[in-house]
Write a protein that binds this DNA or RNA. Structure first.
Lengths: 334, 334
DNA sequence: TACGTATGGTAAATCGATTTATCAATTGAA
DNA sequence: TTCAATTGATAAATCGATTTACCATACGTA
């Protein structure tokens, strides 16, 4: 590898000059001639500073670690895309990890986080003991943001308006005349799912209904879980005419179950899910949704971690309001 | 941050001992007592070696760079997941980048790649000038793998059996009695899409048909592009009774178009797409597909990059054969 | 006693870039 | 002419871990 010393020798200057030119040190006074000479050598030898040496010296790497719980899920992929987007504009790179690969400090990403290999950590959907251990290890070293759920001292929790999303979804169905409206959550242990459920509960209550636990079920965040959840919910509560599904993938799964039962979504039964995805628009019947600011969430996390004003032990809620997008899977109650 | 010197002082040994204990140097002879003392201090002070210093000294980082062309696409997300999986078992971490964020060496991920911040590079769907520049910058420094398409000296091209996939899809339709079978590619500039088309072409020709360019169209890799492509294909070639779609997302889009035209997929018209996705099984009608070894592709790329036997300037084809999964979107020709 | 050989460690160079303090030479002013 | 200030750079310390070569001391043996 070409080093700054190689450049320095070839350009007949000291490594200090090379470094200061590359880093645009304004206090460096040299003749235009010398500057040109060095710049020409840098280009000719295709020199790029060794980033490890740089990071060691400067004590920052320009890398942010992001750990997610299943990157193949389009919903989380969207958050990831938002984070990547913001990272790129902040001049940072993203180190990506799967929560399931965490291994008590043995995995490479954990060593990197524990050993100053990243400038910040974003942890999505924290919940397990390993998540907690990672957050604990990171928070002393670098700004740490928990996305959507979880809590640990000295970190920021970043969330969306989940309560409002649940309420909006439910109100959209109420407006169509539905009264018996069920709820399919992601998982009861996840606070954001819980908040959506509370929103649903509140909207129903305000409308004069009395929601019961029997009207709720677990739909997960995959099509398979959603189909299964819909089936179970129907068994316990056959009189429902509509349902709020807390995750769009589960919503698509719910639609598939209805289709297989010859129940026509949008006419015989209504489904609305939380999170948009371009998929929701292309399944048939098209799935009505409450769009959430997923990209903004990812972006916000990166900005918070990079920002000079990192305030630990706070909760940040992305201000963008959830918006209802009515498609064919919702229709008037009969 | 705690350094090895801090540990050394607290345990009354030299930093050399600390390092050699942590790295399990077999040639280190010390009393069990000393070893315990050091280990206790390491644990008590929660010491983790600085990874930048480590990487600088050892000239390897334990990081692999992976640059993709749209991580929100479930198909590429699957490759990503395979890569992450293999990386984790190799004890590596993944640095993730979007091709669209490449910026002529200005982005952080490019500096890292150019400056030895990664041990290898995997570039998915290379095609643009920036892709080429990145591959050129990387290949001297580290093992570089191009996934699915692209070419650059001193790199490995890793691909799947795309020709076979196209042929299998087409043959599945032929077996159902279809003769007028169209093809919706991803983009003509992508070699893997082209190979699938060649497979389709060959299968049709062998069956005694004479495929023409008018029977092909562009479907991209999103639902929107697929719906649009299906529409155009119908306009130019209204006598088709079935179509092979080169990408599953585009396939879902095609289904949506058919639905909106009151054409019942599986009965009036058949659709089979390349790539499985759990979505394909949950749209209605369920989409028939040719499943490709996407995870194996991602895994293979990581293994190739990490392997001791990196042979540049070769093409590796993932041996797993594509398999047809017949669902409801394909049916007998009428 | 003298010599070889384990035993239990340590000293110091090194990886490559950054950065502060410093220095020689030149210019300008009094 | 002499002192101060500016110009155009450089020397050397530093970041933190790794690793090679080496060094005391104690032990066993002839």
């Amino acid at each position: 590898m070409t080093t700054s010393l190689d450049i320095a020798k070839a350009a007949r200057v000291s490594p200090a000059v090379v470094s200061r030119i590359i880093n645009q040190d304004a206090s460096l006074r040299i003749t235009a001639q010398t500057r040109r000479r060095v710049e020409r050598v840098i280009k000719a030898m295709d020199y790029a500073p060794n980033t490890c040496a740089q990071s060691l010296r400067r004590a920052r790497t320009g890398i942010l670690a992001l750990v997610v719980h299943d990157m193949t899920n389009p919903v989380y992929a969207e958050i990831l895309a938002g984070a990547q987007d913001a990272a790129a504009s902040q001049g940072k790179a993203l180190l990506l990890g799967e929560a399931k690969d965490l291994n008590n400090g043995q995995s490479r990403i954990e060593s990197l986080i524990g050993g100053g290999g990243a400038d910040g950590l974003i942890l999505q959907g924290a919940g397990t003991a390993l998540d907690r251990a990672l957050a604990r290890a990171a928070r002393r070293l670098m700004p740490t943001v928990l996305l959507q759920s979880g809590h640990a001292r000295d970190t920021i929790l970043m969330r969306m308006k989940d309560h409002q999303a649940g309420a909006l979804a439910c109100r959209a169905l109420l407006k169509l005349g539905h009264r018996r409206i069920g709820f399919l959550g992601v998982s009861p242990s996840l606070s954001f799912s819980d908040d959506r459920q509370k929103g649903w509960h509140e909207a129903l209550t305000k409308a004069g209904e009395s929601p019961t636990p029997l009207m709720t079920g677990i739909g997960g965040n995959t099509c398979a879980q959603g189909a299964d959840g819909m089936k179970r919910l129907f068994m316990t509560q056959p009189d429902l005419t509509a349902v709020v599904v807390a995750n769009v993938m589960a919503g698509i799964g719910a639609l598939s179950y209805l289709h297989d039962q010859d129940i026509q979504a949008g006419r015989d039964f209504s489904v609305i899910a939380v999170h948009d995805s371009n998929l929701a628009a292309y399944v048939r019947p098209a799935l009505s949704v409450v769009r959430m600011p997923l990209r903004a969430l990812g972006r916000g996390a990166v900005d918070a971690v990079c920002g000079h004003d990192f305030h630990a032990n706070t909760t940040i809620t992305i201000p963008d309001a959830p918006t209802v997008i009515a498609r064919a899977s919702t229709g008037p109650a009969r």
